[in-house]
Amino acid sequence: MNAFRFLGDMTHLFSVLVLLLKIYATKSCSGVSRKTQELYMVVFLARYMDLFTDYISLYNSVMKVVFITSSAAIVWCMRRHPQVRRTYDKEQDTFRHVVLVAAAFVLALIFNERFTFREICWAFSIYLEAVAILPQLVLLQRGRNVDNLTGQYVFFLGAYRAFYILNWIYRYFTEGHHSRWISWLSGLVQTGLYADFFYYYFLR
């Protein structure tokens, strides 16, 4: 594993934990899109279906479990925690996220490495991850002031994707590893969405 991949994983982990701790410590999820969080939970569940079938390393398995449980904890807090759920901006968080799920699913059925359950789940998770931040970006644009922590959360998520692209470039030249074109294309779209957000974020 190269440094870019590791930094990518760490910024990703950090973004999720920062958000969970923020919600838990302040007992508030104001400014956080529950729809985006639900999409991420679906992303992790679909992608890490291979947890029991393909063993890569202890590191990979532990990280997969951490991502699934921490995203589920965020969603649980926003839906069920007696104090946190009252701070959810339901009227502002109106993005039709089901549309994204349906579109990602149809894309995965058409464009996949192979027409198998594993590969369709994987492609679906990659497509959905690329656009999962959209409800959060819409919510941020509606709010007057972007909360520092929410801004940092989006920043770390963007950094994660950027590091992953560097990791693919590095692997391409050192290992001759051809990351699948599905990840390249989706990763670029995803990073572009974040770059766009930060362009306006820093302008303000």
Partner: peptide, 10 residues
């Protein structure tokens, strides 16, 4: 043609 390799990234 063989089954695609397992996904080694997160």
């Amino acid at each position: 043609d063989s089954e695609p390799e397992a996904h080694d990234e997160l």
